[in-house]
């Protein structure tokens, strides 16, 4: 039961039940670059469209549409909440740290750097659930790549090959 509590911390349950920024994003007309990318998790049916509004080196806005489990929903919701308005370079650092926390298993997470995103640290003990938490972050990776170049993101990301 206590492991479960580590996985489903109150903050996770709250975001899972009441996701923030869950809506589509209109095309932007004011000189910002709006893009979106899709992600899916074929094994459990999680589906995601992640939207970003980028101006210069800042991601001004983030939102999403999609359905999935509590871990997935909370991870996506908190991603949008925490990263909104931040610089791309800063976001890239958080992204790396978040993925490292969930996938490497070696380095202790740095709760300072991740802030409240550190609540997902418990997911590591549930290997089958890691993909639920990382899916929106993988989608974000694609968006960041497209911010680097001139292309607008489009190719979907899947957390499973099959």
């Amino acid at each position: 039961m206590s492991e479960l509590r580590d996985l489903y911390q109150q903050l996770v349950l709250d975001h899972g039940r009441h996701p923030r920024n869950k809506h589509a994003m209109d095309q932007c007309a004011d000189g910002a670059q709006c893009c979106h990318t899709e992600g899916y998790n074929p094994l459990c049916g999680d589906k995601l469209t992640l939207y970003a509004k980028v101006r210069g080196d800042v991601i001004e806005d983030l939102s999403f549409e999609g359905e999935g489990c509590a871990i997935f929903t909370a991870s996506t919701s908190m991603l949008t909440e925490v990263l909104k308005g931040r610089k791309v370079s800063e976001i890239r650092g958080i992204l790396d740290e978040f993925l490292e926390m969930l996938t490497s298993g070696e380095k202790e997470p740095d709760p300072e750097g991740l802030g409240k995103l550190a609540v997902f640290g418990g997911v590591k003990d549930f290997p089958a659930r890691v993909k639920c938490a990382t899916l929106p972050w993988r989608a974000l990776e694609i968006i960041l790549e497209s911010v680097d170049g001139d292309t607008v993101a489009g190719s979907p990301v899947a957390t499973e090959d099959d």
């Binding site: 039961m1 492991e3 479960l4 996985l7 489903y8 039940r17 459990c44 999680d46 999935g68 489990c69 509590a70 871990i71 997935f72 549930f126 089958a128 659930r129 639920c132």
Partner: peptide, 13 residues
């Protein structure tokens, strides 16, 4: 209100 994946994890515990 509870996704099947969360059901599975809860029951596994």
């Amino acid at each position: 209100g509870i996704h099947p994946h969360d059901v599975g994890t809860f029951l596994a515990a």
